[in-house]
Design a protein around this nucleic acid. Structure first.
Length: 427
RNA sequence: GUGGGUGUAGCUCAACGGCAGAGCGCCACACUGUGGAUGUGGAUGUUGUGGGUUCGAAACCCAUCACCCACCCCA
């Protein structure tokens, strides 16, 4: 067996049918983002390690980033996320930008993790942020963007849902239970893991953290309270806005949503498959300070990120992906023999000038083979110029769908194709 | 980093100690100026790799690599 050099672990090859999906996803993201007035931007794919050292989760940089020394001896990393680059870009022009800033991006990221379902080492991510606004209405806008995206790609509220919570609400609830600020991080982690553990395991984990029986029961009650959001003026206002926009069917309150990242300070949300399959489709939230760590003045904002891998799995599961149009062209000009090669190429190019996607067969092989090729790739019209046609400056146009053909002057090939197109095929 | 599963033809898989196979795909011909359909014929494997057990290994054992799944973390 031939040994083909393997691709790098965790990367994906984008064959035309895969690339079509990626491009389609990009278009959907672009359309939805821009419909809300967001502008596209991007940062470098490699950054100095220092940029991430400042912020980002410890594990993200130390364990998961692709880090290497460049030829000049500097340490660089393939970007594992976009937020630090965004923070720098904003900080660099902090005083010349007009706020609130609405930016979106779709590009590649790399994380050195163990690949599995819904997770690769090289992936694409949609990032979208509203910077310089701190209201819950701003948060509602991002959730609306998310809901509109689901609507746009055909995912229904019965299939995906945006789960929303508010960290300030959780803070006050935990405080009410006598949980100290020092214990908070641990408890957030506890809440985050609720769905992965059985009740007994979860309780054991809670007691291990040093929580009392009462505190544990209190947390359990909070997490099971669907009306808890009514105690948060922020959430009340936010749901009111979403209601006005007609987006509430995509949104649910869920006190179990905490999000791992430390920098979220208010609203947090993530979108999930309704039957709880797989990891979350996207995640985001409100932050108070975007640029402080890279040397700017504090700026609040809200944003989310959606990876293409999990999103692709969900879209495929619910049949939302577009059918792949495998046909690269509408017409193909065959080549009868070497002498007629220039004639065939000339006709092909004349068709292109008429806006007909045309390819020509590159070698004068048996016509049968050329027809078979045309049929396989899905080209509808095949043009033949053999010696008989050539002497009369004619060409034969065959419609592979309708099984008809006509021999016409070479100058009328494009018109003939148009005529065939105007008469719908008999199927 | 931890745990589990799977590696056999281009693809999907069978054979589960006794001659390595099928379906699909591919190629040729019937059909040397016309595709799909049909028929006939044909090609392709160090059974992931290395070692061990055995008269005999694709199968059993060990190692290793790759992929998949879960944990961790997160998109």
């Amino acid at each position: 067996m031939k040994t083909i050099i393997q691709s790098v672990k965790g990367t994906r090859d984008f064959y035309p049918e895969d690339m079509a999906i990626r491009s389609w996803l990009y278009s959907a993201i672009k359309e939805v983002s821009e419909s809300f007035g967001y502008q596209e931007y991007d940062g470098p794919f490699i950054e100095k390690i220092d940029l991430y050292a400042a912020k980002s989760g410890e594990e993200l940089v130390k364990e998961q980033a692709f880090v290497f020394e460049d030829r000049g001896g500097g340490w660089v990393t393939l970007r594992p996320e976009l937020t630090p680059s965004l923070a720098r870009m904003v900080a660099q022009k902090q005083n010349e930008l007009t706020y609130p800033l609405r930016w979106w991006s779709f590009g590649p990221f790399w994380r050195y993790e163990r690949p599995q379902k819904g997770r690769t080492r090289e992936f694409f991510q949609w990032n979208i942020d509203l910077i310089g606004a701190s209201s819950v209405e701003a948060d509602a806008e991002l959730i609306a963007v998310c809901a509109r995206f689901f609507q746009h790609v055909g995912l229904k509220p019965s299939q995906v849902r945006i789960l929303v919570n508010n960290r300030r609400l959780m803070d006050s609830e935990l405080q009410r239970l006598g949980i100290t600020p020092a214990e908070k991080a641990g408890v957030f982690r506890l809440i985050d893991r609720r769905e992965k553990l059985t009740l007994d395991e979860w309780k054991a984990y809670a007691l291990e953290l040093g929580l009392t029986e009462n505190q544990f029961e209190g947390i359990r009650t909070i997490l099971g309270e669907p009306e808890l959001w009514k105690k948060s003026p922020d959430l009340v206002r936010m749901f009111a806005i979403l209601d006005q926009m007609g987006m509430t069917e995509y949104v649910s309150f869920d006190p179990k949503i905490i999000r791992g990242l430390d920098y979220y300070t208010g609203t947090v949300f993530e979108a999930r498959d309704m039957d709880r399959e797989g990891r979350s489709i996207l995640g985001g939230g409100h932050y108070d300070n975007l640029v402080g760590d890279v040397g700017g003045d504090p700026l609040p904002g809200v944003g989310f990120a959606m990876g293409d891998v999990m999103a692709g799995l969900v879209l495929q599961k619910y049949g939302c992906l577009p059918a792949f149009d495998r046909c690269p062209a509408q017409a193909m000009v065959t080549v009868f023999d070497a002498d007629l090669l220039p004639t065939s190429f000339e006709i092909a190019d004349s068709l292109r000038k008429f806006g007909i996607k045309t390819l020509s067969y590159p070698d004068p092989v048996k016509l049968q083979k050329q027809f078979k090729f045309a049929d396989r790739i899905g080209v509808r019209f095949v043009i033949i110029v053999g010696p008989d046609e050539a002497v009369e400056k004619k060409a034969t146009v065959k419609d592979l769908i309708r099984h008809t053909q006509a021999t016409v002057p070479q100058a009328q090939v494009a018109e003939t194709i148009q005529e065939f197109l105007d008469n719908p095929p008999i199927l």
